[in-house]
Each structure stands twice: as structure tokens, then as C-alpha cells.
Write a protein that binds this DNA or RNA. Structure first.
Length: 276
DNA sequence: CCTGCTACCTGATGGC
DNA sequence: TGCCATCAGGTAGCAG
């Protein structure tokens, strides 16, 4: 999401929103689509911000449009309204592309698409009024996320490390892939209870989280996303992945077979020998 | 407060 | 081929 924010910023910052289209109203649920259109029409985009996995357009009236991609959401970019209306939800043979919501700006059109319809585009009067945003803990890429802060959070939780890392209300921005990867790098077993870590282990985990996220961000920015291509997806992430989705393959550190278990309804991949 | 379960959707993949 | 089960980068809402 940070790579998306950085790429999107120069495209939209400072631009006026001339027209809002909601092609699939499910994308604004439980908010009403006409209300989103009414509130956002004619406003200007002051900034593009992010916390955890929430991305938002900060508007000139203090309001915001939050974009949450869930599992499959993505941004699209069209040259103008004519191109948008020609291609949005049209036949693939006619360069059609699935679009849920679109914002016609002074120069270009920003689209939001999620065929699975988990993702959301919503309007809020201020940051505090968006519940999902309000409950987020410290952002994992922020300077407030220090080793001491992580140590303190760990000491307050009895949950297994893997579930602890996925809890956005403690640390925001770590998902299933990066939690597996961080624990692999820190050589910590995902089933370990958070509060049982020593200070040294907490520092190791902090270092692992930060380095995994920084390297993933570098990866996702080179090359940067091209929102004009609806097929676009992050390139080169595979080359930094060490444990995720490697069930049955050898651990890249010790050679033991990577295991897959279920924790909190999600898959966890780890090495049972070198992660302790 | 905390934890665990289910729902929300669509599409890809693999076994038979 | 078809059919069915399972899986997917996330969160919200609910019961206990």
C-alpha cells in the first residue's frame, strides 16, 4: 500500500474531482453510493495518505475518501472520461476492464476495481469517524514503531506470535505474507506466545519486520505500479519470499521441509527446525 | 476486555 | 469435459 501511495500521489495531488461514478454500489457498502458522489463531487485532493493497509484521499474540506483493497482490490488510471466510459465494465475484446468506482479529475481518471467485491471506497468527515482507521495501532513503517514499542506490545499479549502480528489494532500494516516472512527471518516459531519473548528476541523480531517491509517496498517501487495496465501486479516479490507458500519445499536456511498450519483461519508457513 | 467463528465475494486450481 | 472441494494478499460482526 505504501508503494501504491507513493505512486498515486503525483498523479492526483492538488487535482479537483469533477465527477464520481459508482458502477458497482457494493464497493461503497454499507454507505450509500449517491451520498458518496454528493459529498465528493467538486472537492479537491489535498494529499494521499496511508496508515496500515488503509489508503485515503485527503480532501480540501477535511473529509476523506478511504480506499481499502482487502485481498484483490486495485487502482486503475484512464486518460479521460471518454476512455473510462468506453472501457469500464465493457467486453474484454473491446479493451474492457472491471471498474467499481471512478473519479474524474482535472487531468485523468482514477478508478478502483475489485472483481471479488471485498474492497471498499468510502467517504468520512474526518479520520476519527472511520472506524477501521480509528482502531489501527502503530504503523509498522512509521518511526514510532521502535523495538521498545514492539517489546511493550508483545508483553501485553498472550496470543501466538503469528496472530499477534496480524492484529491491526496493535501494529498496523503487517499481513499474512509479511508476518510469516518476519517470523522466519527472526527465527521465531509462529506458535510461541507473544509475552514469552526475551528482550533480545523482541529486538530480533523488530529488525526482521522492518527489514522485510523495507525490502518489499523497494521491490514494489522498482518497477513502480502502472495503473494504466489493469493486469499490473507487484513484480519481483517472489525473490524476497523465504517461507510463504513454500509448503513441502526445503527451508532456505536449514533445509528442513517448510510446514503449513492453520492459525486463526489463515495459513502459516514456517520451518519447525530453525524457528523456535 | 478477549478469543474464535463466520460471512462477505469471485476465480483459479487440482482431484476424480 | 464436468463437477466438486479447497484455497486466496483482509476485515467486520457476532456469540460466548
Amino acid at each position: 500500500m505504501e508503494a501504491v501511495r507513493r505512486t498515486l500521489r503525483p498523479l492526483v495531488e492538488g487535482q479537483g474531482i469533477r465527477c464520481v461514478h459508482v458502477f458497482h454500489p457494493i464497493a461503497t457498502k454499507p454507505q450509500s453510493a449517491p451520498e458518496l458522489v454528493r459529498k465528493v463531487h467538486g472537492r479537491a485532493i489535498r494529499a494521499v495518505e496511508r496508515k496500515g493497509k488503509y489508503l485515503w484521499l485527503a480532501l480540501d474540506n477535511g473529509g476523506l475518501v478511504t480506499l481499502h483493497f482487502k485481498l484483490d482490490g486495485q487502482l486503475l488510471w484512464f486518460a479521460n472520461g471518454r476512455e473510462l466510459l468506453k472501457r469500464a465494465n465493457a467486453d474484454v475484446a473491446h479493451a474492457g476492464v472491471h471498474v467499481d468506482v471512478a473519479f474524474e479529475l482535472d487531468k485523468g481518471v482514477l478508478g478502483f476495481a475489485d472483481r471479488r467485491h471485498f474492497g471498499r471506497v468510502q467517504y468520512w468527515e474526518n479520520e476519527a469517524s472511520c472506524p477501521g482507521l480509528a482502531v489501527l495501532g502503530v504503523d509498522a513503517l512509521s518511526k514510532e514503531f521502535t523495538a521498545d514499542k514492539l517489546g511493550e506490545l508483545l508483553s501485553l499479549s498472550k496470543r501466538p506470535l503469528k496472530e499477534f502480528l496480524l492484529d491491526q489494532s496493535r501494529i498496523a500494516g503487517i499481513g499474512n505474507i509479511y508476518s510469516c516472512e518476519s517470523l522466519w527471518h527472526a527465527r521465531l516459531n509462529p506458535l510461541r506466545r507473544a509475552y514469552t519473548l526475551s528482550q533480545g528476541q523482541a529486538r530480533r523480531l523488530h529488525k526482521a519486520i522492518v527489514s522485510v517491509l523495507r525490502r518489499a517496498l523497494e521491490c514494489c517501487l522498482h518497477p513502480a505500479p502502472d495503473f494504466r495496465d489493469p493486469e499490473w501486479w507487484f513484480q519481483g516479490l517472489e525473490k524476497i519470499i523465504r517461507a510463504y507458500d513454500r509448503e513441502g519445499k526445503p527451508c532456505r536456511r536449514c533445509g528442513e521441509v517448510i510446514r503449513r498450519i492453520s492459525q486463526g483461519g489463515r495459513s502459516t508457513y514456517f520451518c519447525g527446525r530453525c524457528q523456535r
